[in-house]
Design a protein around this nucleic acid. Structure first.
Lengths: 202, 202, 202, 202
DNA sequence: AATGAATGAGGATTCATTCAT
DNA sequence: GATGAATGAATCCTCATTCAT
């Protein structure tokens, strides 16, 4: 009569101090899943519940709404960085990783470009450095003379990031399959070759 | 126990039934502006306030959240149809009109493609016919053999609509100028020529 | 987009002055049906819509919520009076008419007894005279010495009206059939014989 | 854009989690009183206010309208069960407890029978088990061969519950005294002996 | 350091009632 | 007289955020 976790419980509880780091990770993982299913406007309480922690813990680790979203995004970016830093990293291969993340949740990579004018998130506060890291990683493995290469002109549009934004705009659809199909079609329309769509494998 | 209209306080206005049509138009206009600034999740009360009418009027004209959004979108689509139906309508010209609307509010043309999985809007309920009308108008003035033309294969991806979605993904930025710059860059990346970005002039 | 009569429309419109009497009747009939289905708390707008008239007309004829309920109840009571006034009127026969009305809508005959403490209706304002008329009609055909007859003691409980209230308490159930079954069982428990359950036939 | 707790104004109270149990009890008590005076349609906000808690607390403990009503009713039923389980429990004695509850608020025991067709409450969802418990308790102390005993026929009407419903129909009136007088008169009309009308004394 | 209850503002929605036409 | 649009108060419900334990 008084309970209503409704669903979303994951771990039995999780008390005691040492769990701090684990809690943080659980929150980020929970947020990723919740965001993927319910969008960025999902109630924070749902994230906490899914992570199996109290609301207070969420606030301890992430003082405001943006910071948890950033944390999720940060993981995405890190994977892209790692993919780009790998031994035989190719541009097409890294784009495959990027595309995989887009397919999982276009909203997220989309955040890298968002200006926040229309949403509750303000990317210029949220992701500027993440955006920079993402761009750098991608640019790092771009072959010389590639059509997405930034020209010499200093303030010319950054075609590389623009292209990613465009693909993220295309990635809509109810199922991952449909979303992946659209992502690949979008890259094709841009004339860009993409490697296998998959998460980065350390 | 039930409702009662204030106690007695002076009732303001009530401009009478004559105002109905005007109110509806005001609501749509208000919604367009509010959506552009605050996004599709803006409180309905804000729209009503901006339109200068009571909450009830909004609900009378638009029984649910989708229907007001549809009304705004419908106007956009109509303009595109009119642009496409005009005398010397060219594909590039119509794309210019489309782009103008994207620049005003990418969210809206975006709705045409949205699947609503993550948001409160469910395009398959909201815009399927609008989407169809939009696609038809655009396709109608697509030159034969254009690279966005649908191939013979029946269930091949619709490159035309995909391209619009991609551009809408690119159109982000705090100012209209920035947004227009990005839109044009996106079309350029796609290798598509666009006419002047402007509203349709009857 | 602007319409939502939802249902409940009955007559095409109904305009013009002379219709006043007809409108009143239509409203009472509509109210009876609406009350039976949706209960006494049904929105007034629904009654007006069902009657095929504007809201204003309802207010013209019935200035407040109680007065329309009274009007419906008045018709019920009138039928009982007529049944009681008929040639070979028997107590059992009249009880059959009463029971028929209870089965149609227990709420209504219930109003005759209600004190309004718990509801929005205040019977002492609503139905005192109706209640009196109802009691008189019923008492009029009560055989001498019947067990429900009022004793000589002046302020003894009025068993006759109490019995009706009791039966109305028993008349619950989703279908008319079930409701009638319960009504008859209730009279039986009271040891009272009831004639055929049917409306009064002039 | 979203919520924010006042701007900064001093937060009142928050008596801490310890208050939880107390709050729940206070809510049930408040609901009982409010229902008795204003009926089952009373605004939930009024109950919360009377209990001295925020709206949210009410929703935490009772996720929907029915569940708070159930909680109140459950207490009633429990008392009847306890009365029936007591040492020298007699049928008349238990009926006295039942009658006491009816006098307090006929609406509640009435819920046990309600079908909800016309109201917002749907007894088949709300009270079926409570109804069953109530019936069982009462039947448990019914002397063999009592006139309200269920006959052998399997689907014969349950006279016991019918009688309670009838009495609850009779229990109307502005004051408890009047209500008790009517309840007793109703039992008398049924030829049923009732013990002292009083709450169950552990 | 974690828990999860409490708070209350804000937004959605409904309807009684008025009133211009 | 009739129509039905407009008004806005009231209620429902949700959730961000705080804080006692």
């Amino acid at each position: 009569m008084t309970q209503h976790p409704t669903s979303d419980a994951r771990r039995p509880a999780n008390r005691g101090p040492k769990a701090a780091a684990g809690n943080r990770a659980a929150l980020v993982a929970a947020a990723r899943e919740i965001y993927a299913v319910h969008g960025l406007d999902a109630p924070l309480s749902r994230i906490a519940r899914r992570a199996g922690v109290g609301q207070g813990v969420l606030y301890r680790h992430f003082p405001d709404r943006d910071s948890i979203a950033s944390a999720v995004l940060e993981e995405n970016v890190r994977q892209v960085e790692e993919a780009a830093a790998g031994e035989g990293a190719s541009f097409a291969g890294v784009l495959g990783v990027v595309t995989w993340h887009l397919v999982q949740s276009a909203a997220f990579i989309g955040l890298l470009h968002a200006d926040g004018a229309n949403g509750r998130f303000h990317a210029h506060a949220l992701a500027p450095d993440l955006s920079e890291r993402f761009a750098r990683a991608l640019r790092g493995c771009l072959p010389d003379g590639h059509r997405l290469a930034a020209p010499d002109a200093p303030d010319a549009p950054d075609d590389l990031m623009l292209a990613v934004a465009m693909v993220s705009g295309a990635v809509i659809g109810p199922t991952p399959e449909e979303r992946e199909r659209r992502a690949l079609a979008a890259w094709r329309l841009l004339g860009i070759t993409v490697g296998p769509v998959a998460p980065f494998q350390g």
